[in-house]
Design a protein around this nucleic acid. Structure first.
Lengths: 317, 317
DNA sequence: CGGTAGCGGCCACTTTCTGACCGCAATCCG
DNA sequence: CGGATTGCGGTCAGAAAGTGGCCGCTACCG
């Protein structure tokens, strides 16, 4: 209680909650003499946390940004917000951050007190529900359980239903979670088969870490993403969309965001390319942009767009 | 360096990165004797962090979830992921979490080392770019600067361009940020007018905290959200969309997510209601659902849907 | 100019920390 | 079952640190 370490943490936490603190108030709250407070502040500075101080009548202490990330001291609300934000980022709301997000999420979840965990679970599925065509709905608990087993190097059991086949209990040594093309895969050593396998996380239920730890094996080639990509290459199942639009690139980018690349062809003409599993997403983009367009590929997109358009026209009457 | 507090933090951080740690390895890394390590673990436990230990040949230490949130010790990647996730949540990707997210974001941003801040700023705007019709593009820096001024109780100057009028420099005591209907508002005491005002954050540029602190005034009524709502009630400017769809409610919900309410009318018939500023969003939903529908209101939606449909049909050829 | 508030040296006293040594208690494995 | 491994915690003595009080100094503000 009267411990120095604890006091330092409390001080750091106080400095994180308000921008300015008069020294007297800090020493008050920490129940030490002002002299000791000054020493504590010094200690923080020695640890690399940049605490600014200003003198004079309205003086006080302030925590600036430094070179290293100080320990984040969060209250309940903030912790929940972070978990929720990470969850939606893990679901692909922010392109390119899925994997880091799920790693950070696993860390937060692991530390989260149960009562907060319940609040988060109340939000149910990991996918930000919405228009992200093709993204399967994924249980956040499943994803984080798997992520934690990877990190903790714990064996994992789960039920798995392959695309065509019976559901089966599996027992694996989890290696890495990989997010590829809006889907999550687990790369793992299958203990029953004695070989490396990949599993789509959305086809996986009731994962449970067994508690047994293992020494990670080396994946052939080393890079799980490459390995997975080569395994999946045998079943390509995506459309490569390419459309020329009579609109300026900036407008298109504003609508499409990260989910496609926009190539400027002229002042008000650009080419949009994106890879998708489901054509409804590009159709929507064409719909909302409301500009002339030419479908270059795939031909199926023409058909989808025409059908959607006819449907709209027919019922708008 | 050989400081106890620092070592405790390092220990906590180690315990956060792997699930299990053999005691010998921990004492090794911390460069203390195993006895001291045991004492450090004890200290953590006394501080309330639940460190489990298991004995025997594969024994080790492990940090469980406890009653309080321990300080989060993040590496660069994780910190960036958290900031990015929070930013997208603040932009409304996760309904209902905008305000808490922006508070947490302000805290993280404040602590973030500049090099990481730059990485995040490279991602530019706070809005998850995409289909969220009507959400104005908002600069993350603006939002967090304002949030930090609120938290730090610092006066704020900024340029403000009202809907119809000249841009003007303002000087306020910021009170609260409020997210309402996919927009951010600042509720503040206007120092020039000597009265409470609200400002749309997307119309606000170059915010700068002056460094002068103030004692927060009491907002009449106390609740900033209520206050703002009553102020805005005079300018209603949204469409109230109501559409009957020939589809089962679950399907519609999966597409619409939080952004509307779905009322089940029959097995394959439901009513969708949502409030929007911009009709392109409901049009897209109608497009992607590809089911018969009847627009109940507003009549403008019929026109928009028809135009979008015709455009699709015309160019799909 | 005077008041406020942070800075940091000095000192004496107290408390904590540390490593070493010990026997003990789970747990795992053969 | 018995041995190896690994965590647990008591005790001890010396070393290290933390503490409050005192002081004069400096920056800032009105």
């Amino acid at each position: 209680m009267a411990n120095t370490s604890a006091r330092m943490l409390r001080l750091l936490s106080l400095l994180q909650t308000h921008r300015y603190w008069p020294g007297s108030e800090l020493s008050d709250r920490l129940e030490v003499s002002p002299r000791t407070l000054r020493r504590d502040v010094d200690r923080l500075r020695e640890l690399g946390y940049p605490v600014d101080a200003s003198r004079g009548v309205a003086g006080g202490y302030q925590l600036r940004a430094g070179a290293a990330m100080p320990p984040l001291l969060l209250d309940d609300e903030e912790a929940v917000a972070i978990a929720v934000g990470l969850r939606s980022a893990a679901a692909g709301a922010v392109a390119g951050f899925e994997e880091t997000s799920v790693r950070a999420l696993a860390k937060v979840i692991q530390l989260l007190p149960p009562r907060l965990r319940r609040r988060i679970d109340a939000l149910q599925a990991v996918t930000a529900p919405g228009v992200f065509g093709g993204g399967p709905v994924l249980d956040a608990l499943t994803l984080t359980t798997v992520a934690m087993a990877c990190r903790g190097e714990e064996r994992l059991r789960f039920d798995y239903t392959p695309r065509d086949g019976e559901s089966m209990r599996r027992h694996v040594e989890p290696h890495r979670l990989v997010s590829l093309g809006r889907r999550w895969y687990l790369v793992a050593w299958d203990l029953d088969r004695g070989d490396w396998r990949n599993f789509r996380v959305d086809r996986l239920t009731a994962p449970a870490a067994t508690g047994a730890r293992f020494r990670p094996r080396d994946l052939p080639g080393g890079d799980p993403v490459e390995w997975l990509r080569s395994r999946l290459a045998t079943i390509p199942n995506r459309y490569d969309v390419s459309v020329v639009l009579e609109a300026d690139a900036a407008t298109v980018r504003a609508v499409v965001g990260h989910w496609g690349s926009v190539e400027e062809l002229a002042d008000d003409r650009c080419r949009l390319r994106m890879g998708v599993d489901d054509l409804s997403w590009p159709v929507m983009i064409l719909g909302v942009l409301a500009v002339p367009f030419t479908v270059e590929s795939p031909t199926e997109l023409r058909e989808s767009a025409r059908r959607a358009g006819e449907n709209l026209v027919r019922h708008a009457a």
